[in-house]
Nucleic acid binder design. Structure first.
Lengths: 97, 97
DNA sequence: ACATAATATTGTACTAGTACAACAATTTGT
DNA sequence: ACAAATTGTTGTACTAGTACAATATTATGT
């Protein structure tokens, strides 16, 4: 199947933070792709959720970012990292969440 | 490709502890398979390393065992769980390892 | 020792993950 | 504003993961 039919394949889709992590580190897809040993378009497919990585690739990515697999991939949508990290520091803002 | 050619596909193989974890819980492959929603032969293929699970399946398995993905799957061979847990309690035995 | 359950083997078929190429669109630096 | 880099799109092709079925082998209970 061609990766163009992204939407035809839903029901077992995972979420990931590759795009954010990559952006944080100021890397291009090409650079990340090289680092984990895949084609740069594959990184694109992963970032926009066209399909899931193999477990092997997930491990390589997780190793590259030095983060546990479950921090990068999840069955539940991620809340923004920013919120997760700083969201609990200002008590005054908490009421409207 | 047919899963029979296990050995033709090496170089990106992962290790896992599915068999041990399943044994510890006294489950048959069929039962585990049902629990994580795959064919029971798929569990067999995974256990003897014929191929890796998808990341999605790895997550379901990890969820089922209530263990982090990296405790069940690894790029490095696992040392026996028994050793990992109890291997450091008897100092006298340590010299011959 | 026999029946049953569990695991292994072989074979076929389908789907998901990955690579690669060519070109379009968008972003970014100067 | 333009050139270069980055990202998106479409299309093709190959490999890895999964299902399923049928039969063989091995373990387990009584």
């Amino acid at each position: 199947m061609s990766p163009k039919d992204q939407d035809a394949r839903n029901g077992s889709q995972l979420y990931n933070r590759i795009a954010v992590l990559r952006a944080e580190r100021g890397l291009s897809r090409q650079e990340l792709a090289d680092a984990v040993g895949v084609n740069y378009q594959t990184v694109g497919y992963l970032e926009r959720g066209d399909y899931n990585p193999s477990l092997e690739l997930a491990f390589r990515i997780s190793e590259f970012f030095k983060l546990p697999v479950e921090v990068i991939f999840s069955r539940e949508p991620f809340k923004p990292l920013s919120e997760e990290v700083y969201g609990h520091t200002n008590e005054a803002l908490k009421k409207d969440r």
